[in-house]
Write a protein that binds this DNA or RNA. Sequence first.
DNA 1: GCCAACGTTGGC
DNA 2: GCCAACGTTGGC
Length: 155
Amino acid sequence: MAYWLMKSEPDVFSIDDLAARPQQTEGWDGVRNYQVRNMFRDQFQPGDLAFFYHSNCTPPGIVGIAKVVSHGYPDATQFDPESDHYDPKSKVEEPRWLQVDVQFVRKFRHSVTLATLKEHADALAGFQVIQKGSRLSVCPVRPEHWAFILKLAEP
DNA sequence: GCCAACGTTGGC
DNA sequence: GCCAACGTTGGC
């Protein structure tokens, strides 16, 4: 079982939105980055856990946990001309973009802000989110980092 | 296959 | 709103 971090802008889709969905489950669609596509395709497994990260907000940080509940599968929005994520170059026979489904697990009483994460740069060496210029919307989390951050969130 | 131009992300 | 960092595109 692997650990992940998934970013979302709370104005667009927050952890509270996830908790309010039917079955508390939502398709993580609209990702248009090949590295993330490959992670969805090759590495994501049902049962994996992910930190839910709020980006582009004040303050940015990890706000809770979601569970991966599907393998990677074609993202329907790439074929929908009405969608913001429409990709005219993607073919149904050969979908370019994948999504996974995630389910709400819990929200932290206190989120772990980016500033807090940076204060623990030593313990979190190699953690992508505190790397300057890190822009991947989905990234792997090492088990020791996962455990360390959990202790920050729920001491 | 290089690389400049462009678009996007996301912290501040 | 600014801007640094990065990914992608497309001309050559």
